[in-house]
């Protein structure tokens, strides 16, 4: 990292610290949520400067986009103002300050940023990069590690996302009652339909956002991208659509049943690819046996499970949004 980039990165991180202080200090939760969006963008830019393009893409789509919408949805149903406390929590402040100093003291033993002698760089990184070239032969090592080398881990994460989605639906309901089949489109739950300019712009942009989502999904082996990012981007475009055109229309485009099927189907597709490896005589989640050429088999496996991840993530995020939004309408 050149000095200029390093200084810019430090500048961004300083802004980030100021923003987080403001988030914790403000009593207005609405302001806090808006500042969270800024903090997310700053941290995404920092990730990009630290060479983590995939992570930056995810953080920008999830942190600045979907997370803000969810928090705002929750605020609309609770209260915007935080009650002022009776006294300043001196004990907590003291403990937090002491722990922060201990953590900072511990960093003096860390190898500095970018040091080649850091433990991460010693054995694992060269092995992953060499093996990706040799065994899988796709340019984006992040996708290869995510989908193939650490396939078990990712399966677990997808199931966690799925479970969290199911949990939200259990707590808040699926919102199916609010959109009873055949009910006429009412005007009072119609999002921003009265505002012409955002709607027209939304119509212009949503197809491009969807297109970007699919590009990120299917080009994820060659450039930054993959199922997690694509799922978040597609979900963001559908959420934008339902903000502009209203809940009911969005549920006409992708009905609740389809969303549930997406949540389950993605996880099942992922698991099925793993079982297919077993049936064809390999190990669970061993893609090499999927094709006569092991390298081709790996590429097929990665493509399929990335689709599974994308479907599940998009389904879960859209379902969560609908659950929050229909709670507000009821």
């Amino acid at each position: 990292m050149s000095t200029i980039t390093l200084l810019f990165s430090i500048f961004l991180l300083t802004l980030l610290m100021i923003t987080t202080m403001a988030i914790v200090r403000t009593r207005n939760l609405f302001v806090a949520v808006m500042l969270m969006g800024i903090a997310s963008l700053l941290i995404a830019a920092s990730f990009f400067l630290l060479d983590a393009a995939d992570v930056a893409l995810t953080e920008a789509a999830v942190g600045a986009g979907i997370s803000t919408v969810l928090f705002l949805g929750a605020l609309a149903l609770t209260s915007e103002r935080e009650r002022s406390p009776s006294s300043l929590p001196l004990l907590s402040l003291g403990i937090v300050a002491i722990v922060a100093l201990i953590v900072i003291y511990a960093t003096f033993d860390q190898p500095p940023l970018g040091s080649p002698s850091a433990p991460v760089q010693a054995h694992l990184t060269p092995w992953y990069i060499e093996s990706t070239r040799e065994l899988i032969d796709i340019p984006n090592v992040v996708t290869a590690v995510l989908a193939s080398f650490r396939g078990y881990d990712t399966l677990g994460e997808v199931i966690v996302v799925f479970t969290a989605g199911v949990g939200v639906l259990f707590l808040l309901g699926t919102g199916a009652s609010a959109s009873a089949a055949g009910a006429p489109l009412s005007e009072d739950n119609a999002g921003l339909r009265h505002y012409l300019i955002p709607r027209i712009l939304g119509r212009l942009l949503i197809p491009f956002i969807l297109l970007l989502g699919f590009y990120v999904q299917f080009h994820g082996e060659y450039s930054p991208g993959g199922g997690f990012q694509a799922g978040a981007i597609v979900a963001a475009s559908i959420i934008l659509y339902s903000l502009l055109e209203g809940e009911q229309r969005a549920l006409l485009v992708i009905p609740q049943g389809v969303l549930l099927a997406m949540m389950v189907g993605g996880v099942l597709l992922y698991g099925a690819v793993g079982v297919a490896g077993l049936v064809l005589g390999g190990n669970f989640l061993d893609y090499s046996v999927l094709d006569s050429d092991p390298v081709k088999g790996q590429q097929w496996g990665i493509l399929l499970i990335e689709i599974g991840i994308g479907i599940t993530v998009a389904g879960v995020l859209i379902s969560i949004f609908h659950a929050f939004a229909s709670r507000g309408a009821a």
């Binding site: 630290l50 953080e59 979907i66 760089q121 990184t125 992953y128 992040v142 995510l146 996302v161």
Partner: peptide
């Protein structure tokens, strides 16, 4: 190349974090 492994772990963690935050909000 910078190490891909931490990026993979965090990439999945971000999406998991939004799902768990949504559960908390619910």
């Amino acid at each position: 190349f910078s190490s891909p492994l931490p990026q993979v772990l965090i990439l999945t963690a971000i999406v998991v974090s939004i799902s768990t935050t949504a559960l908390g909000l619910a």
